[in-house]
Computed example of a mutant assay.
Amino acid sequence: MSLQIVAGTANRALADSVGEVLGNELAPVTVERFPDGELRPAVDGLQGADVYVVQPTGPPVNDHVVELLLLVDACRRAGAARITTVVPYFGYARQDRRGRAGQAIGVRVVAEALASAGTWHLIVVDPHAVALEAICAVGVEMLTAVPLLARELGAGLLGERVRDGAVVVAPDLGAVRLAEHYGALLSRPVAVVRKTRLSGTRVVAEELVGDVRDRPVVIVDDMISTGGTIEAAAEAVVRDGAAPEIVVAATHGLFVEAAVERLNRAGIGRVLVTDTLAQPATPAMPLGVCSVAPMLADAIGRLHRDEPLDDLLART
C-alpha cells in the first residue's frame, strides 16, 4: 500500500511539515464551503492507499470535527484501504465524564463518530482524557510531546533558569502525574496547587504544596485554554515568594477568550507550546513553539511499516 497524507484546513502548516519530513506530497483535497455553512470535502488518488488524515479539532471545534468526519468519509469513498486519523489536539476530550445527570459525554460521541465514518486507527497527542483508548472502538496511539518540551525547557538561556533551582508546578491535582514526568526529565522537584473551579473561566487557587520561595517556577499543563488555571497557579506561587518571570509549558495552546491578557497580567515571562494547533506568527506575548511534526511523521512511518510506537507513547 502507498502512504498518502490528507490535510484538513485546521492546521495545514503542520500537515505540510509532516509531509516534508516523510518526503510525501500531500494528496489533492478540496473543501467546498456552501453559503449556509455546510462543507463538502473531496479527495482523489487514494485507491488502495494507507491514508493518514491530519486535522486537529481546535477552535472552532465543531467546524473542525465535522470537517474531519467528512474527510474520513471522503477517503473511504475514494477507495482507501485503511484510514488513520491524526488528531494532534482532540476536541471534546475534556468531556470524558458527567458532572450531573443528563449531560453528554462528548469524547465518546466524537470517538464513535470517527469509527463510524471509517477510521481504522487514531493518533492523538497528550489528550486530556487519559481513558481515550478505552473509550474508542478503534486502536488509539496516544503520543506525548512532554520530552520535546522538556528538552526545549532545558536548553539555552531558559535552561539556565530551569536548572538554577527551578521547581516544576502542577496547577491542579489533575496535572500531578504530568508535572512528575517533567520533573523526572528535568531532574527538578515538583510542587502542586490545589484549585477550585468556579466557572469555565474563573479558578481560585486555595493552597500550594511545596517550596517555591526565591526559586524559578515552571508551571506545566496539557493545555492552555482561557488561561484561568495558569493565572490562578501563577498567583499562588507569587504569593508564596517564587522568583519573578514564571515559565509555562503546555502541549496545546488554545488561547481562547482573554487568555493572552490573563497570562500577561499574571507576569508570565515565557510560554512554551507545540504546533498541535496553529499559532500566530506575531503573538501578543513571549511565546515559543516546538513542532510535533517530526514525532507525528515518525509515528505515521512506523504505523505504515507495522512497527511499534512504544517510546513515543504518553504515560497513562
Rank of each mutant, 00 (worst) to 15 (best):
T9M: 15
A13M: 03
L14W: 08
P28C: 07
V29L: 11
V31G: 14
R33W: 04
E38K: 04
G45M: 03
G45V: 04
G58V: 13
N62F: 03
H64K: 08
H64P: 00
V65I: 13
V66Y: 02
A74K: 09
C75D: 04
R77Q: 09
G79R: 12
A81L: 11
V86Y: 11
Y92Q: 07
A93S: 15
A93F: 02
R100K: 12
A101D: 09
G102P: 04
G106L: 14
G106W: 14
V109Y: 03
V110S: 02
L114G: 05
A117Y: 01
W120G: 00
A131V: 13
A131N: 12
V146S: 03
A150K: 02
G154Q: 01
A155Q: 05
L158P: 02
G165C: 12
A166T: 13
V167S: 11
V169S: 08
A170D: 10
A170R: 09
G174Q: 10
A175N: 04
L178H: 05
G183L: 05
S187H: 12
R188M: 06
V192G: 06
K195G: 05
T201M: 11
L208Q: 02
R215V: 02
P216Q: 12
V217C: 05
V220D: 09
V220R: 10
D222G: 09
D222Y: 00
T226D: 08
G228M: 14
V237P: 06
G241L: 07
P244R: 02
E245Y: 00
E245R: 10
I246G: 01
A249L: 00
A249V: 07
F255T: 10
V256Y: 00
V260A: 07
E261M: 03
E261F: 03
R262Q: 05
I268E: 00
T274C: 01
L277G: 06
M285H: 10
L296S: 13
A297P: 13
D298E: 15
A299R: 06
I300V: 15
G301Y: 12
H304C: 06
R305F: 13
D306H: 15
P308A: 14
D310W: 14
D310Y: 05
L312Q: 15
L313M: 13
